[in-house]
Structure formats: C-alpha cells, structure tokens
Design a protein around this nucleic acid. Structure first.
Lengths: 122, 122
DNA sequence: ACCTATTTGTCCGTATGTATG
DNA sequence: CCATACATACGGACAAATAGG
C-alpha cells in the first residue's frame, strides 16, 4: 500500500496515518494477518517521528483493528467489517456533497447520531 | 428547542452547541428565519463562557447554516438541506453499529471519503 | 535449554501550538 | 487580550518478544 502524509493539512499526522489504514482495510487492500511496517521504518520513510506513527497504531489497536505488540509489530486483526460501511459512507458523502453540507458538519452529524441511543421516530 | 451541554463529554463544549443546532435543523425543528438565542443569554443559561457560544455560532456561520450579524443576532439562513442527510446518516450509523465499528472510526471514514475527489470503481 | 543480539513497542520527559474560559 | 489547560509532535532511554547460534 501507498503511504503519504501532508503536514500542511489540518488533520493531525497521526490521524492521517490511521485513516489510511482504515480506508485500505475498507477497500480490501489490507486483510486480517497482514503486517503493517514497523513504526520506525514507516516513520523514517514518512519523515515523521516514531511516536507519531505509534500513536496512530495505538489508536487502531484501541479500535480493535490491529493487534499491536512489542517485538511482534502491528498486524491487521480479526476486525469489524469495515467494507460493510463502504456503501453507506459513499451514499452519505454523495448526499452531503449535493446538499452542500461541509465535511465537518457531516462528521458532526454522524457523531451526534451515534450519541443517540437508538433512533426511534420523532 | 432544548439546549444542554455536558462538560464531561470529550466533544468540546462549542462543538456540542453547534451539533445541537445542526441536528435540530436536520430534524426540521429549526427552519430558515428562526432566531437562535442571543449568545449572552444562551451562555448564561448553559453556564458556559460567552466565547464558547460565539465560537459555535461562528462555526455555523462559516458553514453557511446561520446568518450572524451584530445587533441582529443569529438567524437560521437559507441553508443546505440537512434533512436530506437524515436517512443516509441513520443508515451509516446502523451499519457501523452492527459491524462493530466505533464512532471515531466511522467519522474518520466519512472525512476520508470527502477527501477523495469522486469515487470511481477500484 | 541457554544466551544474546536484534527487532519492536513502551515509558519517561519536553517544546510548541491551539483551545478554552 | 490574557492566563491556563490540553493536544500534537518530537527525543532519548528502556523492556519485552523474537530469532540465531
């Protein structure tokens, strides 16, 4: 897979890295058992600090997407089926684009929807 | 509409306020021309700082959701059709819940999808 | 089974910017 | 505008897991 980070973007570096893993998994590009590059190696080639990469890996571990252990590295775990979200995400983004809703607002609406226990009719 | 903020939640206060306006608009509870409470008043009743409310209002103005002018207050503007997102958002959240994907990861996937110019087949 | 060198993440602290009130 | 608090990114030292002999 292809790794890139852009320090200029307002998304934090560690989040950019985590995002790329998630989307690669959603796209089927990374599968259970695949190994991510050692943090030091990736940090070196991206020219960011070791800890920045590790922060991303740790976030992914907290999500249950990767198994991260010292001496062994970061491996894609038995994970939630991200691919199942591909279609709903695309549908939402398309709707948001055509309605002229910003990415920030859309993401905020998604978070808010999660916060509501379950969606009963209003 | 009902306003509440919870300092304990990790979402910043100003974001909680903005989110409530967005969801109220999406739900049809607030319509074009409706007036939001004056920032000072809302700040007082929520027991948060004036700047916190103003920050939320400014974000909403930047999104084009409210018209914010001095002396006149904050008014819901001719806005993007947030209601159009209601169904896609609900669908996505349902899919994420049943797939066991966290809110954070879901929101990140949505943002990432925006970043991609347009989704052609892979 | 042992040792140890290497690989790899974890823990400690620090600087700088941004958010908050 | 100011003071405080928090988050991001970085640096160095440390410790567990692994692999080779």
């Amino acid at each position: 897979m292809l790794w890139t980070v852009a320090p200029a973007r307002d998304e934090p570096l560690f989040a950019q890295i985590a995002t790329q893993v998630r989307t690669a998994v959603a796209a089927g590009e990374l599968r259970t058992g695949d190994r991510l590059p050692p943090a030091r190696v990736l940090a070196g080639s991206l020219e960011v600090n070791l800890h920045t990469v590790l922060r991303a890996y740790q976030d992914l571990r907290d999500e249950g997407l990767v198994d991260l252990r010292r001496g062994r590295g970061a491996v894609i775990a038995e994970h939630a089926d991200y691919a199942a979200l591909d279609a709903p995400v695309a549908a939402l983004v398309a709707a948001a684009r055509s309605a002229g809703v910003t990415p920030d607002a859309t993401a905020a609406l998604v978070r808010a929807a999660f916060a509501r226990p379950t969606q009963e009719d209003r």
